[in-house]
Design a binder for these strands. Structure first.
Lengths: 343, 343
DNA sequence: ATGAAAGCGCTAACAG
DNA sequence: CTGTTAGCGCTTTCAT
């Protein structure tokens, strides 16, 4: 900027005015400055600018995994809102590691992001207190934070959604419905289990431990649990899966059990294969329509957009009490809840 | 930092030394400083630090869409490499808009990122020349840049992969193979078309314009093209689709045509429905295994990792000639190339 | 082992 | 309309 000023024969501040389109610069002078800028290939250093201004016009986004379709939808929504406000986004994946979540958040804070959107992996967010006290706005999305500062929170209505999905199965005559959920440490997994129990209780059905399996979503674990349940004396006639990965893993188990018909397909003749159990999954996924899987759809884009909008309201001065928003879910009936002995 | 220094009764520089673990500080003094830091909740301002140091320890990543599984895999790989080097990542989606690509890149440059990884949407990258001259490293991934500075480039071997996919269909007896590609403006679409033509030529098969359709990947366009081709006098017996979205769209078309059997399934009795055409797709996708779709798999994670590794080599001083890396593709045979009249 | 001074590139506040 | 001065928070350089 100094060089430009020298080249144009003006003072530093005049260059600054031109660069920022500030009013009160003679047109001729402005042109001379602009010419010098173009000639020298000058670009304003936004790092210095933000240091001076005290705002960085950037936010940090910490999610579980950018490569997970649910979170990448959320991520894209946050990005779009941010760009609409001329903000840039630092993105990081925690991979369900509380340590990595914390390290990312603190790294973003050290860069003095103006705000944070966090899908928490950890259960202790005291580490955020000094940062929030220092004026960094934070919004939690998808899961509530553990102990720590009071912030805005945006969630899906997990228990109601889960309850609706299980009630759908019950309405189609199923009495023994298994629940396959994520690790119990995860908030959403607990909530969805709660909805499952509510649905059973409301229908006067017993809650059976043997029909509930919670744990990591890897194929091996799901395979073991599904096979164990299906080969038990009184097997479930329907499965309710607690998230998209779990649903897909269950479909792979079905495919591996040769005695079942493929998803959504009835054989036209020959020996009738064993009917596969009904299946309803929490969370929609690509190709669920083709595979005809009934799901309780969440709204990842809505989650991201809402979180970002709340954040920008805070950034523009809103200092009302913390808000908690729950987004509704939607049952998408594609027929997979109707099949099987229950129907 | 001033406050901490005052509180600890030392000079500013001593606090700086403690914060950065620089040697040459008396243990007792260091403890006193640390106590003051903790008490005051002091955090180093990395913005100021990077201003002084001239490096920001951050990179910018511009992709087409963070919510697309292909790019989100790439994105995650970049992020992992960056975090391994203690770098932070600004992420942005261009949405195939050259303007948005340019705006994002220039915004990242204004923040003085040390490096850029770009999946280009535009065809003119002259806008990058001043930035690269100013010392910002750039690597292009997935597609080569248009006119502009010479940089490292990481691509998939699109034409070979496409050729292998089409040859697979030819090997299974197909003679009329349609090609459904992305808009011709997109480099990868052109390359994959080239591979398709090479495979036909090598087998002595004619190239028929009527069997080639290129355009945006939306369902309506794909539906129209596929239906037109299949209802033509001499319909193709096989389709080769130019990317994952196109493959999925084609599967939806198949599902909508009630006369076809569902993917991978033969009816056991009754009136035999019209056999659906064979299908091979470029790019693997979630559940392709369940749907039994043969694909030419790319390696999005390898693409991202390689691009990031090249970038960090440049950042650590490598100034050799620009490199161009082509990652191999892999044919994953799941049986969908064998079906139909050709086999 | 510690500190003082200068300055990274910019803008806010106040002149002229 | 234009310029001067100070300082954002830190690190570099050079003294002590």
């Amino acid at each position: 900027m100094n060089d430009v000023a020298a080249a144009a024969g003006v003072a530093l501040k005049t260059v600054s005015r031109v660069v920022n389109n500030e009013p009160g610069v003679n047109t001729a002078t402005a042109e001379r400055v602009q010419a010098a800028i173009d000639r020298l290939g000058y670009r304003r250093n936004d790092g210095a600018r933000t240091l001076r201004q005290g705002r960085t016009s950037s936010i940090g986004l910490v999610i579980e995994d950018v490569a997970d379709p649910f979170y990448s939808g959320l991520s894209r929504a946050v990005e779009d809102v941010a760009l609409g406000h001329d903000y840039l986004v630092f993105t990081g994946s925690s991979g369900e590691s509380p340590t990595r979540e914390r390290d990312l958040v603190l790294a973003f804070c050290a860069r003095r992001v103006d705000g944070l959107i966090i899908v928490p992996a950890g259960e202790d967010h005291e580490y955020l207190t000094p940062e929030v006290d220092a004026g960094i706005a934070a919004v939690f999305a998808d899961r509530p934070p553990g102990a720590g500062p009071e912030t805005d929170i945006v969630l899906c209505d997990n228990s109601s959604g889960s309850r609706a999905g299980v009630e759908h199965l019950i309405a189609h005559g199923h009495r023994r419905i298994a629940f396959l959920g994520d690790s119990p440490a995860i908030f959403t997994a607990q909530e969805r289990l709660r909805g499952y129990r509510q649905a059973l209780a409301a229908a006067g059905l017993p809650y059976e431990e043997r029909l509930v399996a919670m744990g990591p979503g890897d194929q091996a674990r799901v395979q073991a649990d599904v096979e164990r349940m299906l080969s038990s004396p009184e097997p479930p006639t329907a499965l309710f899966t607690g998230n998209g990965r779990m649903t897909v893993a269950t479909l792979r188990v079905f495919a591996s059990l040769a005695s079942f018909a493929p998803p959504g397909v009835r054989h036209g003749g020959g020996a009738e294969p064993m009917e596969r159990p009904a299946l309803v999954g929490f969370d929609d996924f690509e190709l669920a329509d083709l595979l005809k899987i009934t799901v309780v759809a969440q709204d990842p884009v809505g989650l991201g957009r809402t979180a970002a909008e709340l954040l920008f309201q805070r950034l523009s001065g809103d200092d009302g009490p913390p808000r908690r928003v729950e987004l509704p879910t939607r049952l998408v009936d594609r027929g997979s809840g109707e099949v099987g002995p229950g129907s």
